[in-house]
């Protein structure tokens, strides 16, 4: 099977992934070309180490290639699926190294400063809505959210990192997520 390079670039993420998993020449290359900046960027953001980020990005695409047939579009987009793989691998790498998690303040700064020049308009709007929603959270909730959503820290771990009671950590995570969703819902209705 062969997918011409120029043709492959016009295909949807789902079609490229299916083609890649089926062994279509051109699909794998186009898939990597389309997502590498995002996947590597997420790994770099989570790890702060370019070499380890490259290893994680490489493994992410190998996983996508090996397990592309397992992807279920009812559970979300290809991009979200790739991000989840990247995040899980990065968290594994951090835990294996017993590395201190990146300071949530630093991670927040990375997220807020990015103006995402490579993405197209609709995603820019979506990302900007999300940024506004995160910025609108109180700082303690932002930090708990970043530790949980990006670095996979449990409420118990967050309570230790932030020197707060477990109940407070749980409340911050929950309040942040509910408020985030509410803000996004309001923005979408405008």
């Amino acid at each position: 099977m062969c997918v011409d390079g120029s043709l492959a670039e016009g295909l949807s993420d789902e079609a490229l992934l299916a083609g890649m998993a089926a062994g279509a020449i051109g699909a794998g290359t186009a898939f990597v070309r389309r997502h590498q900046a995002r996947v590597y960027g997420l790994a770099w953001t989570l790890l702060g180490d370019p070499d380890l980020a490259e290893d994680v990005a490489q493994e992410t695409f190998l996983r996508a290639w090996r397990h592309g047939t397992d992807f279920d579009p009812r559970k979300g987009s290809v991009r979200s699926w790739l991000f989840r793989i990247t995040q899980n691998l990065a968290i594994d790498a951090l835990r294996m190294r017993r590395a201190e998690p990146m300071d949530p303040g630093t991670l927040l700064a990375h997220l807020a400063l990015d103006d995402d020049p490579v993405d197209h308009i609709t995603r820019l709007e979506d990302a900007e809505r999300m940024r506004v929603a995160v910025r609108g959270l109180p700082t303690p909730q932002q930090r708990a959210l970043v530790l949980a959503a990006y670095l996979g820290r449990t409420a118990e771990e967050i309570s230790r990192i932030e020197h707060i009671p477990l109940g407070t950590a749980k409340t911050r995570i929950r309040a942040a997520m509910l408020r985030l969703r509410a803000t996004l819902g309001e923005e979408a209705r405008r």
Partner: peptide, 11 residues
């Protein structure tokens, strides 16, 4: 959608 906020970087 939160994960999508991470900035893209050239590999």
């Amino acid at each position: 959608r939160l994960l999508g906020l991470a900035p893209a970087r050239d590999a």
